[in-house]
């Protein structure tokens, strides 16, 4: 037995193990510091005013009520638009397209959209909706433009999870449905969708979590609004956008409100992700 070699191999191994434990430590500490700072600063800003008053003018008291309502409206519409399109698209890929070249390109486009820079999606909707002058009502910054930008982010997430979940459904179920004479469309809706339901809902929740924190696509679409508004054709306030604007100012009052807002969206996003995981866990 070569003793020197043995010692060296053990040493290399020890170093490697120490390094990867250190990496895990560094990563967890960095992420812990961020969450810690967020909680410490955010909790200081929490107050009932946040939920009852609109975003303030410089120097006056205020909250985030209009931004919270705006975010709920934008996210709600985006999910309403994005979910059916996403589920249908994912169904095509898993049930009809599978190995055709059309499905190959759709899958490719979808995967690119899934990680495309969200600010470019903002520019896309700006050019397509805000800056166009074909349909007069849609011209200019509006809630509907913001919701469309967010829907463009929802769609690829839902397509991806729907396709993955449908592919997990065993083929024997499809064959069983076909053998009792169920047409394809009915067997998909009544059998495969039902079998994959928890997974598809997970996808929608993950998409909702993702858009809840998106700022960049709203900058040139929903734009923001200091007043309470639910009008689809007017600019609308949104939490991430208000946080961005307030942190870009030098006002301490605004910073306090923005920290509280940041805590609210992070808590929302984490809660949605936990729910999604729980659903996913129950399935498997």
């Amino acid at each position: 037995m070569n003793r020197a070699l043995y010692v060296r191999r053990r040493l290399v191994n020890r170093m490697f193990l120490a390094l990867s434990i250190a990496a895990a430590g560094v990563g967890m500490v960095a992420l812990g510091l961020i969450l810690g700072a967020l909680i410490v600063n955010g909790v200081q800003g929490l107050s009932p005013d946040l939920f009852t008053m609109n975003t303030p003018a410089p120097g006056s008291r205020g909250g985030l009520a209009n931004a919270i309502v705006g975010s709920l409206e934008l996210n709600g519409i985006a999910v309403l638009i994005g979910t059916p399109i996403g589920i249908l698209g994912g169904t095509y890929l898993a049930e009809y397209g599978r190995h055709t070249w059309i499905a190959f390109f759709v899958r490719f486009a979808n995967d690119i959209l899934l990680s495309a820079p969200s600010i470019l999606i903002g520019l896309f909707i700006y050019e397509l909706v805000v800056a166009q002058d074909v349909i007069e009502e849609l011209h200019g910054f509006s809630a509907i433009a913001g919701a469309m930008a967010l829907a463009v982010i929802v769609i690829p997430v839902v397509v991806r999870t729907t396709e993955n979940m449908l592919l997990l459904v065993p083929n024997t179920l499809r064959e069983a449905a076909a053998s009792i004479g169920a047409p394809r469309a009915i067997s998909i809706r009544a059998v495969t969708w039902r079998a994959a339901r928890a997974g598809i809902v997970t996808g929608v929740l993950l998409a909702l979590a993702r858009i809840s924190g998106e700022t960049a696509p709203l900058m040139f679409t929903a734009f923001g609004n200091p007043n309470m508004s639910t009008n689809l054709f007017q600019p609308i306030s949104a939490l991430p956008k208000v946080i961005y604007d307030f942190f870009n100012s030098a006002l301490d009052d605004w910073h306090r409100i923005a920290w509280a807002g940041a805590l609210i969206i992070t808590a929302t996003v984490l809660t949605l992700s936990v729910f999604a995981r729980l659903l996913e866990g129950r399935r498997s």
């Binding site: 698209g89 169904t91 095509y92 959209l113 470019l120 520019l123 397509l128 769609i155 469309a185």
Partner: peptide, 24 residues
């Protein structure tokens, strides 16, 4: 009809992707 709906949704995904490129 169902088949066309799913196909249409897939087409829309391609259209969004190409639309982003073309508008840029």
């Amino acid at each position: 009809i169902f088949r066309w709906l799913t196909g249409g949704a897939s087409f829309l995904i391609m259209a969004i992707f190409l639309g982003i490129l073309l508008t840029l």
